[in-house]
Computed example of a mutant assay.
Amino acid sequence: MSSSETAPKKRARANQAEAADPASVAPEAGTTSTQPGPLFVAPISVRWRDLDAFNHVNNANYLTYLEEARLHWLQHVPGWFDEQSMPVLAASEINYRRPIEWPAQLLVELACERLGNSSVTLAHRIIDADDRDRLYSDGRVVMVWMNPTTGKPVALPQAIRDAAEAAA
């Protein structure tokens, strides 16, 4: 780096270096990183109506499959919400690896990547139920627990923390 480079340029270069190497970014205070292990696996059947004009599952339906899997998982976690604490989807990332054709039986695997003060990052994979090496998509979502009245983040429910840590 040249000495004539300004401080903002130096910071920008440092931020680019961190973005290129996610392992170099330290987790925020009060967070726990967990080993991605099987948190929940949801079976999903591809429906004829999920197909697009190219005869494969429309990309928007991948989000529906992921939402369905998260809701199935949450149904197994008593105490995941109440009048003061409900999850909202804050971010989603999907890598489309190959098209899903009909008919297909899928498995949506969820794993906990990170527990924060008010959030959980869930990794996900959509795979073929008959050939688990056939990966259709992967990625992650961030769910933040918020007070529905105030719209402000609240502490992650202990039930979610316990379920995620039990799977690690």
Rank of each mutant, 00 (worst) to 15 (best):
L51M: 14
P22L: 06
G37C: 05
M86W: 12
W73K: 08
N55S: 14
Q75P: 04
Q84H: 12
P43M: 00
Q84V: 05
Q84N: 14
E28V: 15
L51H: 02
A90S: 10
G37F: 03
S45H: 08
E18W: 09
E28P: 10
A53L: 10
L63H: 12
I94N: 04
P38F: 04
A53G: 13
N61F: 09
D82Y: 03
L63V: 11
T32Q: 13
V46M: 02
R70N: 01
V25M: 14
Q84D: 11
N55M: 15
E28M: 12
V25T: 13
A19N: 07
Y65P: 04
N55T: 10
L66K: 02
F81M: 15
A29C: 00
E28H: 14
L71H: 14
W80D: 04
P78V: 03
A42Y: 04
V46S: 01
A29Y: 01
A29N: 05
A23M: 05
T34A: 15
W48C: 05
P78T: 03
A53Y: 11
A42D: 03
S92E: 14
D50R: 07
W73Y: 12
S92F: 11
A60Q: 07
D50G: 01
I94V: 14
N59E: 08
Q84K: 13
A60F: 08
A23F: 08
V88Y: 05
T31V: 08
V77C: 03
V41W: 02
M86V: 15
T32A: 11
S33V: 15
R70F: 00
D50E: 03
T34L: 15
I44N: 01
Q84L: 12
N59F: 01
V46Y: 04
F40W: 01
W48S: 02
H76P: 01
N59H: 13
V41L: 06
N61S: 09
E18C: 13
D52S: 07
R49K: 13
F54N: 11
E93R: 14
E67N: 07
R47V: 03
A53N: 09
E28D: 14
N61L: 10
L71E: 11
W73N: 06
A42W: 00
P38T: 15
V46H: 07
M86A: 15
N58K: 06
L74R: 02
G79Y: 01
A60S: 10
R70Y: 02
W80Q: 05
G79E: 07
